[in-house]
Amino acid sequence: MKSSEMGKKRKQPEDVAGTPNPRHPKKSKNQIDELQLGSLAVELDFAKKLAANEKLQRDRAMRNLFRWLQSQCQQGKRFSKNELMVLWKGLYYCLWMADKPLVHEELADKMVSLLKCFAAHKLSAVKFLDAFFLTISREYSRIDRFRLDKFLMLTRRMFRGMVVWLRETGWSSRWTEHVWLVLRQNVLSGESGVCAEGLQNFLTEIFLTELEATLTEDGEEDATAGDARRECVDGLFRVFCDVLLDADTMFLRNAVQRNLLKSSAATFPRVHALLSREAVATYALQLGQNPHCPVKNRRALYTVHTHFRRPAAAVASDQDEVEDEDPVAP
Rank of each mutant, 00 (worst) to 15 (best):
K55I: 07
L236V: 02
E220Y: 08
D234M: 03
S113G: 08
N186W: 05
D144C: 12
L245M: 01
V295R: 06
L91C: 05
Q75H: 11
E221I: 02
L152R: 03
V322N: 06
D320Q: 06
L95M: 05
L115E: 07
K89T: 14
L87R: 06
A255P: 09
G288R: 01
E217A: 08
M6E: 06
L148R: 12
R78V: 15
A329S: 04
L211A: 00
A125I: 03
S28L: 09
A47P: 15
A120Q: 03
E205K: 00
T282F: 07
E191P: 05
R63K: 10
L181S: 01
N259M: 07
E321R: 00
D144M: 06
V194I: 15
V256Y: 03
P311D: 13
R138F: 12
N259I: 03
Q72I: 13
A213G: 04
W88A: 02
L252R: 00
K150N: 09
A51G: 05
W180N: 00
K110Y: 06
D318P: 04
S276W: 02
L37C: 10
V233I: 04
L211M: 04
R258M: 12
K9T: 08
D324I: 00
R298P: 10
Q289V: 02
R229L: 06
N290I: 01
I32D: 12
N64R: 05
V233L: 00
V322W: 11
D130C: 14
A279K: 10
R142Y: 15
C232D: 00
S137Y: 08
D248P: 10
K81R: 15
E323P: 07
T209M: 01
K116M: 13
Q286V: 10
K122P: 10
R10L: 15
A119M: 12
L215Y: 08
S173E: 05
S276P: 12
A273H: 10
H24G: 12
V182M: 07
V16E: 00
G288C: 06
V86D: 04
R174I: 14
P22D: 15
K11P: 13
L208I: 10
Y92W: 11
S173A: 07
Q36W: 12
E212N: 04
E220R: 04
C232Q: 01
A313V: 09
L301E: 01
S71L: 07
K262L: 10
D130H: 14
I206S: 07
T169I: 11
G76D: 05
T267E: 03
M162P: 04
S71V: 04
W96G: 00
A98Y: 05
A265M: 09
F251W: 02
N53L: 12
K11M: 11
T282K: 06
I206Y: 03
E221A: 10
L114E: 10
S80M: 07
L65I: 06
A266N: 00
L115V: 12
V126D: 09
R10Q: 14
R63V: 11
S124Q: 04
P20W: 04
V315L: 13
N297H: 00
T303A: 13
F237I: 01
R78F: 14
R58G: 09
R157M: 12
R277M: 11
R145T: 13
W171P: 08
A312C: 05
F251S: 05
F146C: 06
L152S: 05
V322A: 12
R174C: 13
L244P: 12
R145A: 14
Q289G: 10
E83A: 14
L37H: 13
D222C: 15
A125H: 02
A265F: 08
I143G: 08
L84H: 07
K49R: 14
K296P: 08
A281W: 01
